Structure formats: C-alpha cells, structure tokens
Simulated scan of single mutants.
Amino acid sequence: MTRLTVLAGPTAVGKGTVSSYIREHYPQVWFSVSATTRAPRPGEVDGVHYHFLSEEEFDRMVESGSLLEYAVVHGRHRYGTPRAAVEEEIARGGSPLLEIDLQGARQVREAMPEALFVFLAPPSWEELVRRLVGRGTETAQEQERRLASAKVELAAESEFDRTVVNTDVSTAAREIVELMGLQPQTTRENP
C-alpha cells in the first residue's frame, strides 16, 4: 500500500537539501507542486514550480478543503499543498513526499493520519547552530529568532513516526526512501 510521506524538522536541518537530493537521485519519488499567492519569480512556470493563485482562488481552496495544509509565510504570502494531486498520486500507486514545516505536518496529520511522518533531526544542537550561522544568509537577529524556533521544533520530534538524523545528505536521503518502502535505485552518484 502506498501512502503519503511527510518530511519535517527544525530550521537549518537541511530539509531542502535532502529533498533536492531525493528529487535528483530517486526519480520514483513524487513531489507535489505547492500553491502560493506570491507572484512568480523570473523563470518560474505556473504548475511546474508553483501553482500561482490569486488571494481569492486560495481562499476558495481553503474553504472547500482542497488543501492538505497551508500557512502564511513571512507574514505576507500563503502557501499550501493541493489535496487532489496527492490523493491522485496515492491512488495510482505512486510515492508522494511532502517537505513541509512543523505547522504543516500537524495539519496533514489531522487531514491524513495514515501518512508516514518523518522527522529530520540534526546530529547535535551544535551542528544545527553551525549550519544556520554558516549559511550566512540571515542577520544575527534573524539567526537568534530561528534558533529559538528550532528549540521548539526539536521538542516536537516525538510527534513523528520515525526520525532520520541528517549527518550526511545522501545517507539521510536513502534512509527516507527506504522508510517509504522503496528500493533505492543505484546510479553512479548513488552506489
């Protein structure tokens, strides 16, 4: 039986990096295309990178229950996961994976409790701090805010079915794919 797998974890743990690795090396895994109310950036294609919606269209999806989860990001734009595409992928026997934040994972748990919830954890608190600070993409104040959020997010680990420690991206990716019940395909980059 196929089911949805939800991947979440604290800020700076590497969810995006691990998901990108899975997308590149495990083509049998299906990723949903999120809906958003923000405008497309240069080069982004509607239906490929995101489903770009008006505020009114997004409101209609929320009201009709057409989103598995949704949130306001950075206090400005809304993002969500369209329910129908995920359900269609499960029905066809595919292997859907959602990489979302803790808030979204909790909403999916309410909507689809049969999903597999995987928590991506750092090897240590010190490594999480090193990764966040090492990115150099946030101000010191933003780093402090994110680290405070990370402490709260780490405390939610017990809400998940399984934990994968992100010590190494390729290893974490392989463990997630195996938890999904898939046999990792061997490639030159993935022996």
Rank of each mutant, 00 (worst) to 15 (best):
M1I: 05
L4I: 11
L4H: 11
T5P: 02
V6L: 02
G9C: 06
P10W: 09
V13L: 10
G14M: 01
G14D: 08
K15H: 06
T17M: 03
S20C: 08
Y21F: 12
Y21L: 03
R23L: 10
R23S: 15
R23G: 02
Q28W: 01
V29D: 00
V29T: 05
W30G: 07
S34I: 06
S34H: 13
A35Y: 07
T36V: 14
T37K: 08
R38E: 05
A39I: 01
P40C: 03
P42I: 03
V45P: 00
G47F: 07
G47A: 05
V48T: 11
H49Y: 01
Y50V: 07
Y50S: 04
H51S: 03
H51T: 01
L53V: 07
L53N: 09
E55Q: 14
E56S: 12
E57N: 02
E57K: 09
D59S: 12
D59H: 11
R60N: 09
M61I: 01
S64F: 00
S66N: 11
Y70A: 09
A71Q: 15
A71D: 11
H74Y: 14
H74M: 13
R76N: 03
H77R: 10
H77E: 15
Y79E: 04
G80Q: 10
T81F: 13
A84R: 15
A84G: 05
A84K: 15
A85L: 07
E88R: 15
E89W: 02
E89H: 01
I90R: 09
I90P: 00
G94A: 11
E99G: 09
I100R: 08
D101A: 09
L102Q: 09
L102C: 09
Q103W: 14
Q103D: 15
G104W: 04
G104A: 04
A105H: 05
A105S: 13
A105C: 06
R106S: 10
Q107H: 04
R109C: 03
E110A: 15
A111G: 03
M112R: 11
M112D: 13
M112E: 13
M112H: 13
E114I: 04
A115I: 02
A115H: 04
L116W: 01
A121I: 11
P122M: 03
P123G: 06
S124H: 06
S124P: 03
E127P: 00
R135G: 14
G136L: 11
T137Q: 12
T137L: 14
E138V: 07
Q141S: 09
Q141N: 05
Q141Y: 00
E142P: 00
Q143S: 02
E144Q: 14
R145H: 03
L147R: 07
L147S: 06
A150W: 06
A150Q: 10
V152H: 12
E153R: 04
E153S: 09
E157I: 13
S158W: 12
E159Y: 02
D161T: 12
R162N: 01
T163K: 14
V164D: 03
V164E: 04
N166G: 12
T167W: 01
T167K: 09
S170N: 05
T171M: 00
A172T: 05
A172I: 02
A173D: 08
E175R: 10
E175W: 00
I176P: 02
V177I: 05
E178Q: 14
G181H: 08
L182A: 04
Q183S: 14
P184T: 07
T187F: 08
P191F: 12
